[in-house]
Design a protein around this nucleic acid. Sequence first.
DNA 1: CTCATGGTTAAGCATGCACTTAACCGTAGG
DNA 2: CCTACGGTTAAGTGCATGCTTAACCATGAG
Lengths: 132, 132
Amino acid sequence: MLNHEWAGADRVFHALADANRRAIIQRLTRGPATVSELARLLGVTVAATVQHLQVLQTSELVRSEKAGRVRTCQIDPSGLRRAEEWLRLQRTTWEHRLDRLGDVLGESAADHSTTTTTSDDPSTTSREEPRS
Amino acid sequence: MLNHEWAGADRVFHALADANRRAIIQRLTRGPATVSELARLLGVTVAATVQHLQVLQTSELVRSEKAGRVRTCQIDPSGLRRAEEWLRLQRTTWEHRLDRLGDVLGESAADHSTTTTTSDDPSTTSREEPRS
DNA sequence: CTCATGGTTAAGCATGCACTTAACCGTAGG
DNA sequence: CCTACGGTTAAGTGCATGCTTAACCATGAG
């Protein structure tokens, strides 16, 4: 149930894959910052920072507004939440399977058709994006 | 506090950045699978699948054992947990900041030196990896 | 107006990455 | 032994990515 809309997962995780982008997020959790502040923090050009910010914004990890000629960036929680939920879903699914498996082993402790628990469910999962 | 050891974060998030690797994880939460099963699921070569599995293993997202000539893969929860915790830390840090900000706005509602809450904490965070 | 500051955009480049093919190894089964 | 199957490894290829420089736009200060 609630397979939700893991469409954006690709964007979010791709954004999180870069150390500098994670550093931006980490910084912004402490409070808003301007583009050049972030650039100084990362030790890269302002141009590079802007590119990172574009990625972070399209994945809904960061929001930003322009006041005068200064752009101020801050955290957008929706992206973080999405990633967090995807991970939690995977972990809980895995844990529930272990629970069921424990039940079976507890009830009929004699019969164990062992690791052949595989491949008996053809396509229940429905991939998120079968790649482009 | 508890800045822990976000060293492996780079590996984990890089691993999670690929849609096919996430598909592997998603599949393995339902139960173990062999290499060729995963290859068939992804619609790519067995060779490509092995490469993905190497990435997933070094980031502690998947474990695997070889029995005879068949390698069986399953979830390794430690990687998932690490990623989940990093995200949770960022989100909670951000939320706590909002709380403190709410306190200030509640107590001394008159004085607001507004959005200048920025840049007054030079380097409290200590980057995880200042990039190679 | 003029200059400086903060940001945006466009190439260009070098590296990394996902995938393929192809040769190869090890374990069954006949 | 011989063949088939599951997996591993090594090149090689094409595309994406992260960064830089450089030209450019817009706003604020003198």
